[in-house]
Design a protein around this nucleic acid. Structure first.
Length: 625
RNA sequence: GCCAACGUAGCUCAGCCGGUAGAGCAGCGGUUUCGUAAACCGCAGGUCAAGGGUUCGAGUCCCUUCGUUGGCUCCA
């Protein structure tokens, strides 16, 4: 809703003209800047009213909720010091410095106090103070963290505060006009968090919560979280017998037979795609001498995460990345400009000593297989090669129905090489993205230590994002390893190198796949595609025969000949999320047909076995979802 | 690594104020031969994560270590 204001009005008065908007308006955008509903307007101001549907409206709403929580914490735990409390994607948090950590019981007490504050409908008021007054004010109130924040604000900054009841917080705003406008909230969990995100600083207590305009929306959010728990790949991985993680090997996944079928199918598809795109495949050792890692620069930049060992008095490092292997293969012989671009893929097993607290199912492990590839080329090839990789990424993700977003990461503080090279490399990546029409955002300072990169982030079923694909441009390694090719002029030249993954890691991608499909994989990926269910032992021979025929057709079948009722066998097959069940009783033995049941649609009735096989083969061939 | 919570049978969980461990499912053995999401009976299964301490006595209280979970930090 866009409108032009009259002098002396407020956005709230504008909203009041429309009964719907009066209820929904949370903040306003005035001439491009977000402001409160009570912000005084001048004649001709461009005003857009913001509701919960707008990101800024959502943030304003939840930011006020976080202030209410902080106020409640101050009441429940007097003497608590305030740190920071912003709105985040799905809610808000506030960091506190307390004597005693919070418990779940405390959350209930804080929620109760929050309800009281909401009911009291206290007005939020903004005021500004000059810097020395602001510092003194926060010192008097016993808020050392706020004092530190003020001291770090730039000289010219306006130092604003928000007050509701006896609670005052340093805050840029905007906020809702009063606490009564926060209708539905819930505190979700407590966690430790370092002051200013720095692990050398004190660990504070963070309380997370979320807030919605209606009870129904909050309930829907809670239901979504429950659904996420139901889809958790760690739970499904155990239930479907795909993989396990045990105490004896923290961060090192065990793949079970069914998980291995899935993994091999994924690799098979991956290999086909790479072959079609002009890649060759290599495999390089998981250990190389430490001196090699010093040459590559990994030892300097990455040693804290590397596993090392001693072999015959020589130090070796287990590879945390595959690139040196690819480089050594390249350097094994002379290359002509005619060989380039050279695309060498490797499903490479890497080990990284991740911090114990970072481990998370298959998503974050200490040993994983990257679907890596290294591309060697002349500078003229760069843009087309990058565009080619981007297209492969899109094809792969579309196959599984993933949504994804792209980031371009620039030079980090800890980097090799001079800034001009970085500038040039970054610009090339940008051009490639522009030319394929791929929307992207810049991620400042997040590149690899040897070059800028393009990252693909997949969005999972509950909106979490996972980095999978990455394309990294590298001018450094070719220098360090003195890589060359012979040009048309007969002289030696330096090739350019691109590192890239599409799936990221097989482990993480499988974890994401499990959650994406809630374990109910499309037929082409299902470890077991057909379950043969006999009604009595008279069906055993026919089941064995059908199993042979399905196997001959390249389909994966399993039979359930146990002395159980058909209802029980169906229940188990459904829970195993097998796409098709064939019920084999006396009628089917007699007719030679099969009674088909689909995981999704239930009983499909009787059909000829050939018809069923043709239908399933088609479903597999098209990778139908 | 840091903060917090948790760790009891393969899985999900009970076990009160400290008195020596229990259920369902799964497994195994029987009975039953059955038509689209759980037949019945029985059996077996545990150094209560590991180690130490307090106590006449510890699954329960305290300490240490390991692991898991949620975050922080880091990241494919």
């Amino acid at each position: 809703m866009e409108t032009i204001a009259k002098d002396g009005m407020t956005p709230f008065e504008l909203a009041a003209r429309d009964p719907e908007m009066k209820k929904q308006a949370l903040a306003a955008r005035v001439n491009g800047a977000v402001a409160e509903l009570w912000h005084p307007l001048a004649a001709g101001d461009q005003v857009e009213l913001l509701t919960f549907a707008d990101e800024e409206g959502r943030r304003t709403y939840r930011h006020t909720a976080s202030h209410i929580m902080a106020q409640a914490v101050k009441a429940v735990r007097p003497g608590t010091k305030l740190a920071i409390g912003p709105a985040i994607d799905n809610g808000f948090y506030y960091d506190f410095d307390t004597e005693e950590p919070f418990s779940t019981a405390d959350l209930a007490a804080i929620e109760k106090e929050m309800s009281r504050i909401v009911k009291a409908n206290e007005k939020l008021e903004r005021f500004e103070l000059p810097r020395p007054d602001a510092i003194r004010y926060m010192e008097e109130r016993g808020e050392p963290y706020k004092v530190e924040l003020i001291q770090d604000l730039p000289e010219e900054a306006v130092i604003s505060f928000y007050k509701q009841g006896d609670f005052v917080d340093l805050c840029a705003g905007p906020h809702l006009p009063s606490t009564g406008r926060v209708k539905a909230f819930k505190l979700t969990h407590v966690a430790g968090a370092y002051w200013r995100g720095d692990e050398h600083n004190k660990m504070l207590q963070r309380i997370y919560g979320t807030a919605f305009p209606t009870r129904e929306e909050l309930d829907a959010y809670i239901a979504r979280m429950e659904e996420a728990k139901r889809r958790d790949h760690r739970k499904l991985g155990r239930e479907l017998d795909l993989f396990s993680l045990v105490e004896e090997g923290p961060g090192f996944a065990f793949f079970h037979p069914k998980g291995m079928v899935l993994r091999n199918l994924l690799e098979e598809y991956w290999r086909k795609m790479h072959k079609d795109n002009g890649y060759s495949e290599i495999r390089t050792p998981i250990m190389l001498t430490k001196s090699m890692w010093e040459q590559s620069g990994h030892w300097d930049h990455y040693r804290d995460n590397m596993y090392t060992t001693l072999i015959d008095d020589v130090e070796f490092c287990v590879k945390p990345m595959n690139c040196p292997g690819g480089i050594l293969v390249y350097k094994n012989k002379m290359h002509s400009y005619r060989d380039l671009p050279l695309r060498m893929a490797e499903l490479g097993l890497v080990h990284r000593h991740e911090m114990s607290g970072a481990l998370h199912g298959l998503m974050r492990v200490r040993a994983f297989t990257q679907d890596d590839a290294h591309l060697f080329m002349t500078p003229e090839h760069i843009k087309d090669e990058i565009k080619g990789v981007i297209r492969m990424d899109c094809e792969m993700y579309d196959t599984f129905g993933f949504k994804y977003s792209v980031e371009l990461s620039t030079m980090p503080e800890d980097h090799m090489g001079d800034e001009a090279d970085w500038e040039k490399a970054t610009e090339t990546l940008r051009q490639a993205l522009e030319e394929v029409g791929m929307p992207y955002v810049i991620n400042e300072g997040d590149g690899a230590f040897y070059g800028p990169k393009i990252d693909f982030h997949l969005e999972d079923c509950i909106g979490r994002t996972w980095q999978c694909g990455t394309i990294q441009l590298d001018f450094q390694m070719p220098e360090r390893f003195d890589m060359t090719y012979v040009g048309q002029d007969g002289e030696k030249h330096r090739p350019v190198m691109v590192h890239r993954t599409i799936l990221g890691s097989m482990e993480r991608f499988i974890g994401i796949l499990i959650e994406q499909f809630a374990g109910a994989f499309p037929a082409w990926l299902s470890p077991v595609q057909v379950k043969l269910l006999t009604i009595t032992e008279r069906g055993d021979a026919r089941a064995a025969e059908i199993e042979r025929l399905l196997d001959a057709a390249g389909l994966r079948a399993e039979k359930d000949l146990r002395n159980e009722k058909i209802g029980f066998k169906i229940r188990e097959a459904q829970m195993e999320k097998v796409p098709y069940m064939l019920v084999i009783g006396d009628k089917e033995i007699e007719s030679g047909e099969v009674a088909v049941r689909s995981r999704k649609d239930g009983d499909l009735g009787v059909m000829a076995l050939d018809t069923f096989i043709a239908r399933l083969k088609e479903e597999v061939a098209t990778k139908a979802m």
